[in-house]
Write a protein that binds this DNA or RNA. Structure first.
Lengths: 260, 260
DNA sequence: CGCCGCTTTGACATTGCTCAAAGGATGTGG
DNA sequence: CCACATCCTTTGAGCAATGTCAAAGCGGCG
């Protein structure tokens, strides 16, 4: 009944877990790279050889703080995360949401200090991958480098859409657009089973921080979407009643996700 | 007296210009790559060998439209450009400004359809570089690949800051922040001569589209900044009267530009 | 000279925010 | 198994920032 939220494994991953667990950990990443870049067996093997360090974290805990200079990249294995920035006055803006298979701070391959925070959205399992291991692979396996570059370019495209969303759509459209994006990405392209019920991993306050609204207004707009019979909802459990209409309200065109 | 705007050459570049003009065209790019990535002589030579096609364009003309599938990248040689997206209702959001040395659509190395428009801000000279030429260089010269990747990661960082700017700062801060960014980037890091007068290449309507405000409100906020004695202004000509205070009002921290 | 695009001003409308408090879940310790 | 704390969601009333509409200035250019 809970389609969306991938629960952390019952048996908590041991930090520095054994190699079979490690293989599991990289599976969602490999699947994604396969999808966006076509890797050879050698490429896949090189990625699988990355020495990952597993970590469990609870909802809200920081995986990375602004200003840190990490020497590892953070790959999401299970659960969800978000990246955020703070205004000098303390206002928070969430700039992206992430799901299993996403490397959340790939930019540290080239950029020094983190310019934003990364936090767990729900209970989460992440795999830390040494930057040096990735760099070594990039030289030996150009296809991996291309796939990762492509991934970060898609990231950029999503950021541009978010600037548009936050800047030029009204509250109702913003929220609808975010819903569409999350549902679409959950399906890995092709809004899979838009009718099914699912649980969003984020609170209304986090939706507010992603759409640049207040939690109060998010609440009202969700009720509005419900009254329009576009969605059904009960706490964080959603069902889309009219996917086409929701997309239209949201002004949602998935081209920017570049999932083909 | 016009520090900011680089005037298009008096002698208009011929499309498909001769090789000496071509060398000039790539100079700002090489300088930038040098700064962010340390290229060897070979690397530089490979870039200089790119067969560019020069084009003059007047303010407002489109260099690229959403949905197109370009086979060339667009490098700015002189003048300025901006990228924008449109809402289904026709509201425009500018997502970035660009200056000489910027490749404005590097993402087409990996991504198919353009997800946004690119337009000239003022009179401009651009160099079109075949994607295949760039791809060939990426394989042969990994340092060039790294520098370009790094550049696109910085792009992403700027997008994140814009999401924050548009999402969580008020109108006055947004505009001040945009001013700070433009001045800082003009100096290539280190806000060079913040006291000097300069002309912004964009209209107040374009500032509005970049900050997600209306032109009317931009006008009022500029007057407000002037009344606070932070800036001096007469049409598009500006002088910063108090750089430190402006940065503070703007909540501006240049770390996100990653210029070190 | 006269058009045109940009900037500026004014009056008014509205979206979304603030503040405050109440209602529900869920979990924990006694 | 209850009592309570906590975290989220929901509601209400009033307000502020920003948008809308309309028109007037003002510079530059053909």
């Amino acid at each position: 009944m809970d389609q969306q939220t991938v629960r952390p494994a019952r048996t908590p991953a041991r930090p520095g877990g054994s190699s079979d667990r490690t293989g599991d950990a990289l599976a969602p990443l490999l699947e994604k790279l396969q999808r966006i870049g076509q890797l050879s067996d050698d490429d896949g093997a090189a990625v699988r050889a990355w020495p990952v360090r597993l970590q469990n974290a609870r909802a809200g805990s920081y995986l990375l703080r602004e200003g840190q200079q990490p020497r590892e990249c953070c790959l999401i294995v299970e659960g969800h995360a978000f990246r955020s920035k703070l205004t000098g006055l303390g206002n928070r803006q969430i700039v992206s949401f992430h799901m299993p298979g996403d490397i959340v701070d790939l930019q540290h391959l080239e950029l020094r200090g983190a310019d934003h925070n990364v936090q767990a959205l729900d209970e989460i399992v992440v795999a830390w991958i040494p930057l040096d291991a990735i760099r070594a692979t990039l030289e030996a396996q150009p296809a991996v480098a291309r796939a990762l570059w492509r991934d970060s370019l898609i990231d950029g495209s999503i950021f541009r859409e978010w600037i548009l969303n936050v800047g030029r759509r009204d509250a109702r459209m913003r929220i609808a657009h975010l819903l569409c994006e999350l549902i679409y990405r959950r399906g890995g392209g092709r809004a899979a089973h838009p009718q099914q019920r699912f649980a969003l991993p984020m609170s209304q306050e986090q939706i507010a921080d992603a759409t640049a609204l207040t939690p109060v207004h998010v609440n009202r707009m969700l009720q509005h979407l419900e009254a329009e019979k576009l969605i059904e909802r009960e706490r964080r459990n959603f069902r889309i009643r009219d996917w086409a209409a929701l997309c239209s309200v949201a002004d949602f065109d998935p081209a920017y996700l570049h999932l083909e």
